[in-house]
Design a protein around this nucleic acid. Structure first.
Lengths: 247, 247
DNA sequence: CGGAATGTTGAGAGTTGTCAAACAGCGTGG
DNA sequence: CCACGCTGTTTGACAACTCTCAACATTCCG
C-alpha cells in the first residue's frame, strides 16, 4: 500500500514524456534545474495518490500508467472529471489544497517536484509557466467538450464518444495514422466508464453490448476492442465526423 | 446588429474590473502598455460575439454585462459550457480558432486587445501570463464542478446548484457578506438555464415552481429571487453545506 | 391593442436507473 | 487439480425521472 520513492533519477533527456510534459519547452539549463528537484514515486493500481481537500505538497507529471480525477458527493455518487495519461500534469501551482481525488487506475510512475521549489522555478523560467498555461487551456477544452457529452448526449452516444476518444488518444500515442481498423484496450472498468459518463454501470454494459450487436465495434474478452470503421463510430457519437479520415 | 467600437479609452486605473481581470497584477508601466493596445467594443443582448470555428483576432475582458459560451451539435442540441461575467477573460492566446460560440446575454461592454500584440505583451510581462494561468485554473475548477452537476445531480439539485452559484457570485460582486436572506435577479432565461444544466426548459420551469412551493425560494415576477435560507438551498443542491454560515 | 417571446402546466411516452440474479475470469488454498 | 470466493460483467423486470408534445398564461413592445 505504500508508495515507492525512487531516489535514482534517470536523466530527463531520456524521459519518454520529455517532449509532451510540462518540461517540453525547457532549454537544457532549465532542465538541469528541474532535474535537481525532481524525484520519482510509483503507486499501485487502486491506490489513492491524492485525497480531495488534503494539502498538496507536490506537483508532477504522469510518466507511465493511468490515473483518474474524481469528485464524490456525500451520498457516494461520484463523477470522474479527468483522465490522466502519460505526460499529463497533476497539481495546481498556487493552490493550497487538492480539489479532487487522484486515483491510480493502473500501476503508475510519477515524476514529482516539491511544490514550493517548483513554484519558485516556475516564476523564474517562463518556458515552464508558458507550457503549463498551454496544457491547462487544453484541459479546459477537454472539460468543456465533456460537458456537452454529459449534458446532452444519450447513453449510446456517450459510450461511442468515450470509445472514440480512447481510440484517438491511443492512436496519437502509438503514432498510428488512424487507418481503418483500430484496435485498443479499454483502460477502465465498466464502473469507471459509468463514473466518467454519468451513467450506471449496467447502462454502460448494455450500450456496449448494443454497439457490438450492431457491428460498430467487436469485442475480444471484456476489454479488447476493435473498431472496423472509425467514421461509423464517430457518427454514433454524434460528432461531426465527415471531414478528415478518408480525405 | 453592429458592434459599436469606441475609440475613446477610459483610463485603466478607473476601470471597474481593474483588480479582478487579466490585468489585475499589472504594475503601472505594464498597464500603460496594455492601455496603448486596448479598445472597447459593445454588443447588444442576443448578439453573437464570436462564432465557433472562426478565426479569433482579438482577446479581451468582459467589463460589464453577461455572455455565454455554448457548443451546439448538428441536430441543434446545445450545451452551455461557460458563463462570462464582468472581469472574465475571452479568448485563448496561442490558439487560432474559437472553439465555442460566445453570445451576449445582456448588453455587454468588452475591453479588447488585438491577439498578436497581446501575445507579444504577454510573453514580455510575466504578471499578465501569471494572472491568466490563475484565471484559467479557476475556470477549469468551475468546469469540473459543473461536470459533477451535469453527470450526477437530479433536476432539482441542478436548479438548486445554479441558484446557489448565482447567489454566491452576486454576493461576491456586491460585497454582501452572505447574510440570511439573499436577493438577486436571474440573468438567464429558462431556456438558457436548461442549456446550462442539460435539461429541457419545461423541466427547469417545473423544478423552479417546486422549489418555490416548498419554500426554498420566493419569486417576484419570473426573474427576481429571494433565498430565505442559503443553507437550505445548498442542502437541496446536494452540496456539503454544514460548515460555515452559522458557525 | 395585438403579436411575439417567454414561461407555466398537464398527459403520456421513452430512456435510464434500481434491484436482483447469474455468469466469467482469476488467484488462492486445500 | 479443482473447489472456492472475489471482482467484474451481463442480463432481465420493473420503476422513476425526465422528455416530448400541446395548450394556455404572462410579459414585453411596437
Amino acid at each position: 500500500m505504500t508508495a515507492t520513492i525512487q531516489t535514482i533519477s534517470p536523466s530527463c533527456s531520456d524521459c519518454p514524456i520529455r517532449h509532451r510534459a510540462v518540461c517540453a519547452r525547457c532549454e537544457m539549463d532549465e532542465l538541469e534545474r528541474l532535474e535537481e528537484i525532481k524525484y520519482y514515486r510509483s503507486f499501485e493500481a487502486g491506490q489513492t495518490i491524492i485525497w480531495s481537500g488534503d494539502k498538496m505538497d507536490f506537483v508532477g507529471s504522469v510518466v507511465s500508467g493511468i490515473a483518474t480525477l474524481t469528485q464524490t458527493m456525500e451520498d457516494g455518487r461520484t463523477q470522474m472529471v479527468g483522465l490522466l495519461l502519460p505526460s499529463d500534469f497533476v497539481g495546481r501551482p498556487g493552490r493550497e489544497g487538492a480539489a479532487y481525488d487522484v486515483v491510480a487506475t493502473t500501476d503508475i510512475l510519477m515524476c514529482c517536484f516539491r511544490k514550493k521549489p517548483f513554484e519558485k522555478l516556475m516564476s523564474e523560467t517562463p518556458h515552464i509557466a508558458h507550457r503549463l498555461l498551454e496544457m491547462t487551456l487544453d484541459e479546459l477544452d477537454a472539460a468543456r467538450e465533456w460537458m456537452l457529452v454529459l449534458g446532452r448526449k444519450t447513453a449510446r452516444e456517450k459510450i461511442a464518444s468515450l470509445l472514440s476518444i480512447i481510440a484517438r488518444r491511443d492512436a496519437s500515442l502509438t503514432g498510428d495514422g488512424g487507418v481503418r481498423p483500430m484496435v485498443f484496450d479499454l483502460p477502465l472498468t465498466r464502473e469507471a466508464m459509468a463514473d466518467y459518463l454519468g451513467l450506471t454501470l449496467e447502462t454502460v454494459s448494455r450500450q456496449i453490448s448494443a454497439l457490438k450487436k450492431d457491428g460498430v465495434i467487436h469485442l475480444e474478452g471484456k476489454r479488447h476492442v476493435t473498431v472496423p470503421d472509425m467514421g461509423r463510430l464517430m457518427e454514433e457519437a454524434g460528432d461531426d465526423s465527415d471531414g478528415g479520415v478518408f480525405a
